[in-house]
């Protein structure tokens, strides 16, 4: 008793409470910076782009001469074609990889090394993937600047992103339910397909949609591959050339006439709307299927 000077404790209290409140205010202000920037971006985009946002814009091909009739149709359809190739290739490869690494591979240095490198791959700049696609698909495999070449390139780019998200989702399934399944004579595959995957699916799908959202807005690999911006038809097979939304926006921004950069803003609005819709689906799926352990 008496080792502690009660006066010091009383004096300190004011400053403790001050820092306690300060911390909250600082964190709130930092959050505010992000929100403000986002709000300004959206305001600016809407301000520039809304005047061209008409039905024509969705249904017309792009025109480099007349801004009034220039539209986003080829780019929207082209991007959808692109996703048609990217999504299945990326999903099958990355979810299988994640399942192999988490459920089948022997734990050890080799597995750890592969896991670390997949995470590293997720951080590789997209332009590098573009160069890979150019060398491998466009030239070596002579696919040209087709939907297939670009789709495979983007699939490679988002593969590690989905793989990492899937690994985390699979790891979050408690081992006790795996043991319950195996303990009843179920095979590994039955356990994986009936217990592990259904439990991990919300996390996997969230990862997939976020990765696809990134792929659909990605410009750099498409620039490297040489995706055309003046094309007055939509692809009819995966071997055809195509346009893409981010490429179209990029080419409009580069035009000297000011109206075209406003048109680019209109394109951004459409792209953002599509991204928002995709993210809403991700959130919906996560909430609908999420299970608690």
């Amino acid at each position: 008793m008496g080792l502690i000077d009660k006066k010091i404790i009383d004096n300190k209290r004011t400053s403790r409470l001050f820092w306690n409140n300060t911390a909250m205010v600082v964190f709130f202000l930092c959050t505010l910076v992000g929100l403000l920037v986002l709000a300004m971006l959206i305001y600016d985009t809407l301000n520039d782009g809304l005047r061209f946002l008409r039905w024509d814009f969705i249904t017309n091909f792009a025109s480099a001469r007349n801004v009034e009739v220039s539209g986003f149709y080829g780019a929207i359809i082209g991007s959808l074609w692109l996703m048609l190739v990217t999504a299945p290739v990326a999903i099958i490869l990355s979810v299988s990889t994640a399942l192999y690494l988490e459920e089948y591979a022997r734990k050890g240095r080799v597995t750890d090394f592969i896991k670390i490198n997949i995470s590293n791959l997720a951080g590789v700049p997209s332009v590098v993937f573009g160069l890979l696609g150019l060398g491998l698909f466009v030239r070596a495999m002579s696919m040209g600047n087709s939907v297939l070449a670009a789709g495979l390139t983007l699939a490679l780019m988002i593969l590690p992103v989905i793989a990492v998200a899937s690994q985390e989702a699979i790891r979050a399934v408690p081992s006790s339910v795996r043991e319950a399944s195996i303990g009843m004579g179920a095979t590994k595959w039955q356990t994986v397909s009936r217990i592990v995957l259904p439990a991990a699916i919300p996390g996997i799908i969230t990862g997939i949609i976020l990765a696809l959202s990134r792929a659909i807005g990605e410009t750099a690999p498409l620039v490297v591959i040489g995706v055309p911006t003046t094309l007055l038809r939509t692809p009819s097979s995966v071997m055809d050339p195509f346009q893409a939304m981010p490429m179209q926006i990029y080419s409009w921004v580069k035009m000297p006439q000011h109206d075209f950069s406003d048109l680019a803003a209109t394109g951004i609005i459409v792209l953002l709307a599509i991204l928002l819709a995709m993210n809403s689906v991700a959130i919906f799926i996560r909430n609908k299927f999420s299970r608690k352990y």
Binding site: P174, S176, V177, E179, A180, S181, I182, G183, M184, G185, A186, T187, R194, I195, A199, R291, K292, Y293
Partner: peptide, 27 residues
């Protein structure tokens, strides 16, 4: 698989599947 079909196991912590009671027993 054959062994575990003949020799069932109950674990330390209850570990039902995140499924209905029916689906758990029918698993």
């Amino acid at each position: 698989e054959e062994l575990r079909t003949k020799v069932g196991m109950v674990f330390q912590k209850p570990n039902p599947f995140p499924k209905s009671i029916y689906d758990n027993v029918a698993y």
